[in-house]
Design a protein around this nucleic acid. Structure first.
Lengths: 256, 256
DNA sequence: AAAGGATCATGGTCTAGTCCAGATTAGGCG
DNA sequence: CGCCTAATCTGGACTAGACCATGATCCTTT
């Protein structure tokens, strides 16, 4: 209880109390280190070899402790680049329907979008099913990486029905929000969403785009969007660095 | 792509493709092993030492691979007991408002609840804030562990406002759903919920109750419940084995 | 000043062990 | 047949290294 008081600043009394007693010394030391980092500027931890010497342990043991703190979302790593202290989580209100930039900036943080690709592709089986199209039908695919305060935390793949958004690929997809484009250029507004949330790991393009080491935990958020007429217009697959978000949701349960 | 085709049966084209090339051999072999396990009966993997010999590698390397599959939710471990192949995830429809047993049984699986404790305690700071009570005010705390098909996957702590549910601790809290009790005995129905979802790790009572090794990834679901008059009546903290669930949600976004 | 290349540091991967505590199991005893 | 104990097995924790590919940096060359 005492040793873990700072392990998680939040008030969850029951998880995250006393992890294994042996390694706790190391984790505590690491958390102290994390807390000692400046708010602004480099949130980078010393190199593994430095820390290993400083705490007089081995690399394996150190990495074990780092991995647990990574799972807890207190620190993260960029592949082959080092370990960093995690920033406070972004609060992602699922039903607010806010574009990424507005959501981020409303929390006094800086948002940035990188367009990775925007092209017409043949729909995979899963995508075609979700969009209600025949397999291999042409769809627009827009892939973006999004950053908060300079750190890439989200990899998104959008798949759009081309019949709903003809020629959308020629717009400025890096600067504008898709939902704004939908509304302004196509008079389509998202009025129903089906979410699916689950945990996975990074790997492949998503991992590379976010500099995430393979096997790192990730939060998957899949969405199917319908317009005001109930027609499915697009779907998207989001892969978040799991330490970067906290999802919130306020609603009326169905059966009441 | 090819090697990872079976790595995740779902259709996420972009994450989880090619993890590190060296360890991929090991992961593939482990996944084959997992797929070779019987649907019914023991889903247990061989001991680490056996696998290490079978794949002619070291324990450290093997455990690294196991850890990545654990993060991906393909396998899980019970502390000091061994590794097991994960079952398909339970679909948890957040807004369905279904009691645990109904949710589980509607998916042709077997539910079980273990009452760990039910008592009056002084509210911690966080709990009192969430319930709108002064700090250290008495509250009912009900702690339960819940299992699907015999495996404990959920640790829940409920905190109830005693003024809303006088004497509720003397009911059968193991066999009945709380929401059913609320409705039948107190004429209270939950008509608004505030969710908060995030990733953490197991440790402390939650970890022990689920046999989860410390540092294992967990899915936290926190909820504050209001009755038909908008009054906060209780809140709960759920800690799920992250491989055991997939959250779904279908709703109308706010601004449209 | 920009481009290119060489060097160095870092994390990623892996080997080969040891010791320990908790969980399981097989016996033995009442 | 049930209870208890002792032996065994298992994962948890840790030591002490090594090699490699990539990322970062600095320095030269153009």
């Amino acid at each position: 209880m005492t040793s873990m008081a700072q392990y998680d600043a939040s008030d969850n009394a029951s998880a995250e109390q006393s992890l294994s007693p042996q390694a706790s010394r190391l984790r505590e030391a690491l958390l102290e280190l994390v807390h000692g980092l400046p708010e602004k500027g480099s949130r980078r931890l010393p190199s593994e070899r430095q820390m290993m010497l400083a705490f007089s342990t081995t690399r394996i043991t150190l990495r074990e402790a780092l991995g647990q703190l990574e799972n807890a979302g207190r620190i993260y790593r960029e592949s082959r680049r080092g370990w960093f202290a995690a920033a406070p989580r972004l609060r992602y209100e699922l039903l607010a329907g806010l574009p990424f930039h507005e959501m981020v900036e409303s929390q006094q943080r800086q948002a940035m979008t990188h367009l990775l690709s925007a092209e017409t592709v043949a729909a995979s089986r899963g995508i075609s099913q979700r969009l209600g199209l025949p397999e291999s039908a042409p769809v627009y695919r827009i892939v973006r990486a999004r950053a908060i305060d300079g750190r890439r935390v989200l990899y998104v793949e959008h798949h759009l029905r081309p019949d709903c958004f003809p020629g959308i690929l020629s717009f400025d997809l890096e600067g504008m929000s898709l939902t704004a484009l939908y509304r302004q250029e196509y008079a389509i507004r998202i009025s129903r969403v089906d979410y699916e949330l689950g945990s996975t790991v990074f790997g492949g393009p998503a991992g590379e785009a976010l500099y995430a080491a393979p096997g790192t935990p990730a939060q998957r958020i899949t969405r199917v969007n319908r317009d005001q007429n109930g027609r499915i217009v697009d779907c998207d697959d989001e892969y978040w660095r799991h330490d970067a978000i906290e999802l919130t949701l306020s609603a009326v349960p169905r059966p009441g």
